[in-house]
Design a protein around this nucleic acid. Structure first.
Lengths: 341, 341
DNA sequence: CTGAAAGCGCTTACAG
DNA sequence: CTGAAAGCGCTTACAG
């Protein structure tokens, strides 16, 4: 069943059928439209979008790129198991579908793979999860012609739609929350030097201390990867060295869970001996014991904003508001912080 | 940059370039091949797959369908947040990419949406996560021409690639594990009547009891949805009614976590007062307290098998082994079960 | 081993 | 308001 078949059945030209399908109502009489639509309905005709893409140079496909680094390729890490990634993808797909776009997903370990995807399918735009370091993104921006959206990227490029969260504020709030509950020996867990995002959060931690006249103590900084394993290590050290630390903030929920685990292995009770706050407010937070207090990024909102800006740019060629939106964050209160008062 | 451009640059016909790209080495001399490949390399030529699909009727696109029921559409449930779903998708995408296929994902609430996707993109095959009830799948099978793979579907159709786990055995092992640890008053939590899969698991529960001469007690069956909320309700009832139950098995990790939470709310300590085993062995299991013992389905293996059978069917038209593989399951031992001996 | 022709199913630009 | 022609970038089937 093709355009031609429908045209023959309706006794009109392919052009007319095409106009009906594409809603160019001004070019077709109501009567013809009705007749054509009835036949389309009757035969369940659905246009072949490969053919459409080929002729009009728009595919209505958006590529969601999950960038893997080489280490993860070797380890065979499944990025989709990361709740941040999967929540993002779900929210993006929903938004794309609502706007009649199609979603192609692809995990990718080098820029060339992204370029191939674009050329292969004439992809209208791409959304990159976990952008690689700034230099790679800069190169990519040069070689790609379609609009790109990403998240938390350190690169500030006029053509890049880049949605970030207010990272500094997030960790400021987290640290402040601890201070408000009477804590002053507050550990910061994350190797903040390797990432722009984490460095911003570290600054928030320091600002909260400063504003409250608490001297920054480098001994309280645990530069481990903000992963489950890194958290365990930090938590265990805190508990074992009978450190004066009574609270720990970190940059990922999974790391906070590790901190609790590690501290327990060292003999601590949570939150009595150590208060902990996570980051991201994943669904996971309600399944731990104690339930984890966390900084919420509103991931769905982030996904939705990136998607709608991307589509706007595809349709109009530019974006009305800024390409560099930074979303607000907030503390979600649960049970993992105890008041010292 | 098109086939024609490459052909002109190499001084050969488009046909020859096409043969080189498609590896039809027998039709092109080594010398010509090298020349063409060098030019392709130099200009970074990548074929337009829309054009290819249009002419050869194969898209090399596989659709991953996430079926939503109406309730979830209304609630705006993000299925990707479900770790079972996201783990599946990640594993499938990896396998598809390895075989040079592309992955289009789409959440869908009615069969017609699936049909449209197929016709739109000439999709070579589809993988359905969470198949709808048997009757819908039967209808779908009639109207779809490309191969379909799915999981845990109750429909037994010769053309359907259907990968299941040994559900009866899974719950048998879970129940047996409790019995081996000295439990005999074992609760089963799940509304097993509404689903084929859950009914199989319920049978495993009963078989384990029978084999060990423990009388089945209908009071120990809590017919709640195997969700976090359902688990809380069951756990709370068990704890509040000072039921003789000392152990609970269920059909989802998330429900097991709920059971622990509910029992605690009723004043129980876990696992001292109540032992619990989950199902699926999600990554989540290691983040709870106590860490959750669970039945492992080996989701990646399930995904991989479905994908490779689907691709085999696409390539050869049929599948050598059976379409109805049932994978083995096993208990993964953690901390949520206490021995009564 | 190589190539000219026709066609896949659409849309665009133009003519009426 | 309607249509005939050309073209998107490939592949297939055929001829040489």
């Amino acid at each position: 069943m093709t355009l031609k078949d429908i045209a023959d059945l309706a006794g009109v030209s392919m052009m007319t059928v095409s106009n009906v399908i594409n809603g160019k109502t001004s070019r077709v009489s109501q009567k013809t439209r009705d007749k054509v639509n009835a036949i389309i309905e009757e035969y369940g005709y659905v246009p072949n979008l490969n053919a459409r893409s080929l002729s009009n140079k728009k595919s209505h496909i958006i590529g969601i790129i999950i960038s893997l680094d080489e280490k993860d390729v070797l380890l065979g890490t499944n990025y989709f198991e990361n709740p941040y990634v999967s929540t993002m993808i779900g929210a993006i797909e929903k938004e794309l579908q609502k706007n009649e776009y199609f979603t192609m997903i692809r995990s990718v370990s080098k820029n060339a793979d992204i370029i191939s995807l674009l050329k292969n399918w004439n992809v209208d735009g791409i959304i990159i999860l976990y952008p690689a370091a700034g230099e790679y993104m800069a190169k990519l921006m040069d070689s790609v012609t379609c609009p790109i959206a990403t998240f938390d990227c350190e690169l500030n490029h006029p053509n890049l739609i880049n949605i970030t969260s207010n990272d500094e504020k997030g960790m400021y709030l987290s640290t402040k929350y601890m201070i408000n509950h009477g804590h002053s020996a507050i550990a910061f867990v994350a190797d903040y030097k390797i990432s722009h995002v984490l460095a911003n959060r570290f600054n928030g931690y320091k600002r909260a201390l400063e504003e409250n006249h608490i001297t920054f103590n480098p001994d309280y900084v645990y530069e481990y990867s903000p992963s489950y394993e890194g958290g365990i290590q930090a938590g265990h050290e805190i508990a074992s060295n009978s450190s004066p630390v009574t609270a720990a903030v970190t940059t990922a929920d999974i790391c906070a869970i590790g901190i609790m685990e590690g501290a327990r292995l060292g003999g601590y009770r949570i939150p009595v001996d150590l208060s902990v706050i996570g980051y991201d407010n994943l669904t996971l937070c309600q399944y731990t014991l104690p339930k984890l207090t966390s900084v919420s990024q509103n991931i769905p909102q982030k996904a939705k904003l990136a998607t709608s800006l991307l589509l706007e740019k595809i349709r109009t060629g530019s974006v009305s508001s800024s390409c560099q939106a930074a979303l607000d964050v907030e503390i979600v209160d649960r049970q993992s912080v105890i008041s010292l008062y």
